[in-house]
Design a protein around this nucleic acid. Structure first.
Lengths: 239, 239
DNA sequence: CGTGGGGTTGATTCTTATCAATTCGGGTGG
DNA sequence: CCACCCGAATTGATAAGAATCAACCCCACG
């Protein structure tokens, strides 16, 4: 983990110049360690920081009045957590480490400083916001209109793309209850449905390991179109 | 509709100076009229414009492979439609007029021009993006974890706040099938559930007219907390 | 008067949740 | 090395919620 994680991540969307890289690096000082399950940031507090993830996975969640839980985001290394809370007094979600996490808090103000100094990074952050929105849109479609099996298939494929995985096998360190809470299903039903997908010879998920048996079939089955993950800064300044 | 709609809308989140107002006004030239049900922008095309809504309501939607529909957003006057598609080659959703709409297309590039000229408006657009994300998050929670009756109650309350309605009665020009497609329900079930809410003496919705019978009860029942709609630019530059 | 779109209602089926019991596997401590 | 324990996953039985299908009403509009 020598290289800056955030720069790696941002380089997917734009070619950064050294100055931009320096600005981004300022967001990644000050790493803090969290153990699996540890709360990184509480819900409904006056949070003045965002967090960059240097290593490990995390998620954002909300607990409802009746105790139900909804997982809102799953964050991977290089992502910035909390951006969407920029205009709010109190935090709207809780951030939790999924495994051992190194995260770097930085004050919200540092982001607007970057806006002032580099219009191109402004674009880029705007772009990231847009991409996150598109992922949320896709989740709404998934939860709102697809049955459990397609939902899970779609989720697996999204993860594959987000992890930049060309292989059909990869690690996915998510318990079934987290997956369920992300997709609006009970953990029991996740288990059953994964069993079904296994029998259909589409995906095999066991102890945090995913093996996609037939990618084309799975994509077809899930009605998955990766376009919503393929943003690019070049589209931002034309038209 | 003398006053600029977009400026009215933006003034909820920040106090604009005359120069900023001028910049925003450039987004609202060039109005085009659409009749109810007319498509404003297709899905999966190379769209180089965003749209500002001057009057009327519109929605964004996606159609799935099996013909199912999901309504993604409902846009009110003064909102900018399409922001989230900034980084994408092809449009990810379809925009449709709900009633008679005046919308002003403007090239994507004009937005980045604004970013270059006014860091404060950059902040503001970033803030709007964040607010939209928060609304999506809330919809995910709603769809993923709440039963139909709470879901509808929550939706009505969100609309009340977005419309800036202090009264407990207002117009809501949405057919039940649109509401259903927005909330992941069938139109039949929407009808039935609205009936139930009527019997419970919480809300009465008839031909596009909403009457909230008991606001406190309804808020309690829906587990509704309006915090996610209350963004403010002042929180953006501190911390 | 018809006609059609939107809304309501009932009957039935399907999907998913819930509750409960069982298994599996990895760690811990004796 | 084994017994135990715990969290996670699986499996079965049942119940609840929502979809679907079909009929019907209402009413605005030609």
């Amino acid at each position: 983990m020598q290289a800056s994680c955030i720069i790696n991540q941002f380089n997917h969307f734009a070619d950064l110049n050294p100055e931009e890289e320096d600005l981004l690096r300022t967001l990644e000082r000050d790493p803090k360690g969290y153990v699996a399950g540890e709360t990184i940031s509480e819900c409904n507090i006056e949070q003045t920081c965002f967090f960059t993830i240097k290593s490990g996975w995390a998620y954002a969640m909300r607990t409802l009045a009746d105790g139900e839980r909804q997982v809102l985001d799953i964050f991977l290394p290089g992502q910035v957590m909390g951006l969407r809370e920029i205009g709010f007094n109190r935090s709207l979600s809780k951030m939790v480490a999924l495994n051992a996490v190194e995260a770097c808090p930085f004050p919200k103000r540092r982001l607007t400083e970057i806006f002032d100094r580099s219009p191109r990074l402004s674009d880029l952050f705007f772009l990231l916001m847009a991409r996150e929105q598109s992922m949320l849109i896709e989740r709404i479609i998934n939860i709102g209109r697809r049955p459990a099996d397609q939902r899970l298939a779609h989720f697996v494929l999204e993860m594959k793309v987000r992890l930049n995985q060309s292989e059909n096998e990869f690690e996915l360190p998510l318990k079934q209850d987290i997956i369920g809470d992300a997709l609006g299903l009970s953990s029991v039903h996740v288990s059953r449905t994964l069993g079904k997908l296994r029998e259909m010879n589409l995906v095999c998920m066991e102890n945090s390991h995913v093996r996609i048996r037939d990618l084309d079939e799975l994509v077809e089955f899930a009605d998955f179109n990766p376009a919503y993950l393929e943003s690019d800064i070049n589209w931002a300044r034309q038209g």
